[in-house]
Each structure stands twice: as structure tokens, then as C-alpha cells.
Deep mutational scan, measured.
Amino acid sequence: KELVLALYDYQEKSPREVTMKKGDILTLLNSTNKDWWKVEVADRQGFVPAAYVKKL
């Protein structure tokens, strides 16, 4: 499975999103959308801005 690194803190703004902290390592589930990537963090799945994460 592919992992991404959170480059910035992100606070979810809708139930479809997830909160992450800078430095978090997240499991990447889907990166087909260039703006929003689906990730899993702490047993929750949701979207984060693609610009806020980097593939490892």
C-alpha cells in the first residue's frame, strides 16, 4: 500500500474529510482526483487536499 506524508495540519470541514497533523503518515487509498486524495488515518477514511500531502 502507498503512504503519504502530511505536509501541513488540516482540519476537516465536512464528514467526508479527515483531520491530519503535519508529519502524520497516512495510507493513500485513491489519488485519481488531482485536488482531493482519499486517505486512511486512525481507522477513518476520508479526503484531504492533495497539495497538503506528499507521496513517500
Rank of each mutant, 00 (worst) to 15 (best):
K54H: 12
K13W: 05
V41G: 14
I25P: 01
F47V: 08
K55F: 10
S14F: 07
L3G: 03
A50S: 13
F47A: 03
V18T: 06
P15K: 11
A6R: 01
T19A: 07
L26K: 00
G23M: 04
Y52Q: 07
S31L: 05
W36D: 01
D24V: 05
G46S: 02
A51N: 14
T19G: 09
L28K: 01
D35V: 13
V39D: 00
Q45I: 13
L29D: 02
L56S: 04
E12P: 14
T27M: 13
E40P: 00
K55G: 06
E2V: 14
N33A: 10
Q11H: 14
E17I: 04
R44W: 05
A6F: 02
K34S: 12
E12Y: 04
T32Y: 09
E2L: 11
M20H: 01
Y52G: 09
V53S: 01
I25W: 06
V39A: 01
E12A: 15
K54D: 09
K13R: 14
A50G: 06
V41K: 15
V48C: 04
E17R: 04
L28S: 02
L29R: 03
V18Y: 03
F47L: 09
A42E: 14
V41E: 05
T19D: 04
L26T: 01
V4L: 10
N33Y: 08
V18A: 06
K1F: 13
E40N: 06
K55I: 14
V18K: 02
K22R: 11
G23P: 00
T27P: 15
P49D: 02
L29F: 04
T27I: 15
R16M: 13
G46D: 00
I25T: 06
D43V: 08
A51I: 11
I25C: 07
K21R: 13
V18C: 10
Q45D: 10
Y52M: 13
Y10I: 01
Y52H: 09
I25Q: 05
A6Q: 01
V48P: 01
F47P: 00
K54E: 15
N30Q: 11
W36I: 02
K54C: 15
A42N: 14
S14M: 08
E40V: 10
L28F: 03
D35Y: 15
K22E: 08
G46H: 02
D24G: 04
Y52L: 14
K38Y: 15
D35T: 12
N30I: 09
V48I: 09
K1T: 12
T32C: 13
W36N: 02
L3I: 09
Y8S: 08
K38N: 08
D24W: 11
Y52N: 08
A51R: 15
V39F: 00
V39C: 04
K22A: 13
D9M: 04
Q45N: 10
K54F: 10
V4H: 03
Y10K: 00
E40T: 07
M20R: 00
K21V: 10
D43E: 13
K34M: 11
T27Y: 11
V53A: 03
V53Q: 01
A6V: 12
E40L: 09
V39Y: 00
L3P: 04
D35L: 13
A51Q: 12
I25S: 03
Y52C: 14
L5G: 03
R16S: 14
E12D: 05
T27E: 12
T32R: 10
K54T: 14
Y52I: 09
W36A: 02
N33I: 07
T32M: 13
W36S: 02
V41C: 14
V39N: 00
E2D: 12
V48T: 01
M20K: 00
S31V: 07
K22H: 06
V18Q: 03
E2P: 11
Q11E: 15
K38W: 14
A51Y: 09
Y10V: 01
P49Q: 02
W36R: 03
V53F: 06
K1Y: 14
N30T: 08
D9K: 03
Y8R: 15
V53H: 01
L56Q: 05
A42W: 11
K54W: 10
V4W: 07
E17L: 05
M20Q: 02
E17W: 03
S31K: 06
D9I: 02
K1E: 10
A6M: 02
A50H: 04
Q45W: 07
A42L: 14
Y10H: 04
V18D: 00
R16Y: 13
V41Q: 14
E17K: 04
K54R: 13
W37K: 01
K54A: 13
Y8E: 10
L5I: 15
A50R: 13
P15H: 10
L7P: 00
Y10D: 00
V4A: 11
K34C: 11
V53D: 02
D35A: 11
L3K: 11
Q11T: 14
L5Q: 10
V53C: 15
A6N: 00
T32G: 10
P15R: 11
D24A: 08
D35C: 12
Q45F: 07
K13I: 07
E40Y: 06
K38M: 15
L28A: 02
S14L: 09
S14A: 09
Q11L: 14
K38R: 11
Q11V: 14
P49C: 05
D9T: 06
G23D: 06
E17T: 08
M20A: 02
E12W: 05
V53G: 01
N30H: 07
L5W: 07
L56M: 10
Q11K: 13
Q45M: 11
S31I: 06
K13E: 08
D35N: 14
Q11A: 14
E12N: 08
D35M: 12
T19F: 04
P49S: 02
K55Y: 10
L29I: 14
V48H: 00
L28G: 01
T27L: 14
K55L: 14
W37P: 01
A50N: 03
Y8V: 11
E12T: 08
T19K: 04
T32Q: 12
L3E: 07
T32D: 15
L7G: 02
Y10R: 02
Y10M: 01
Q11F: 14
P15E: 13
T27H: 10
